[in-house]
Amino acid sequence: MKAIYPGSFDPIANGHIDIIERASEFFDEIVVAVMINPKKKYLFSLEERRKLVEDCFHDNKKIKVVTFEGLLVDYMREHHYRVIIRGLRTLTDYGYEAQMALTNKNLYKESETFFIHSEEKYTFLSSSIVREVYFNGGSLSGYIPHHVEKALVEKIQATRSK
């Protein structure tokens, strides 16, 4: 069975990677869907985010990375996916994620959302926290893979020099 793990991944963090790798133990294929949320302003372009995610999983043949715009359920219906994987860090996440799961179910009856709780060491971690730590001079060690940190540093330096 195939499952889809959607997100904006700006940038992908170790908590995301952990959820994806753990989910891949239970499903034949995990499609990581790098998406555009029109309400968000992104640091990395869609293509840059896709490449950073792909580089995390180049050795895992069960994980495929795609990009798209629009409703997740429309993409799922078109490609015959039924399972959505979502990570939960806190009780606050659950409220939002439960609402999204019910909305997706309402829009696409065949869909089911599977929640995977974050490892304790990642419960505080999000892409916005990664950016905030970097912008304030903190260490990103343990938060993101080395290639993502390198891309983040390069992107910020390029942005600041404009």
Rank of each mutant, 00 (worst) to 15 (best):
I116H: 07
H117N: 09
L88C: 01
I84C: 11
D74P: 09
G87A: 07
L72M: 09
E112F: 10
H117Y: 07
A101Y: 06
Y96E: 00
G87S: 10
D93T: 07
E120Y: 14
L107S: 07
T92Y: 13
N106G: 05
K121G: 12
L91E: 12
M76S: 02
N106T: 12
Y122V: 01
G95P: 00
D93F: 02
H80A: 08
Y108N: 06
S111N: 15
G95R: 14
L88E: 02
N104Q: 04
Y75G: 02
H79A: 00
I84Q: 03
Q99T: 06
T103L: 15
N106M: 06
H80I: 00
R77F: 01
Y122W: 12
E120C: 04
V83E: 03
R89T: 02
E78M: 10
Q99N: 09
I85Q: 06
Y94V: 08
Y108G: 08
E120A: 13
I116Q: 13
D74G: 07
R77I: 01
L88T: 01
H80D: 14
M100T: 09
Y108V: 09
Y75N: 04
L107M: 14
E78C: 00
L91Q: 13
G95D: 12
G87Y: 08
Y81C: 04
A101P: 12
H80L: 05
E97T: 09
M76R: 00
Y81M: 04
A101V: 04
I84M: 10
I84A: 07
K121C: 13
N104E: 00
V83Q: 03
G87L: 08
V83I: 15
Y75T: 11
L71E: 00
H79R: 05
M76Y: 02
I84E: 06
E110F: 12
G95H: 14
I116N: 07
L102R: 06
T92G: 14
R82Y: 08
A98H: 15
K105N: 08
L91S: 11
F114D: 01
K105T: 09
E78T: 14
N104F: 01
G95K: 14
F115K: 00
E78P: 00
R86L: 09
R82H: 11
Y108D: 11
S111R: 13
G70V: 12
H117M: 10
S118P: 15
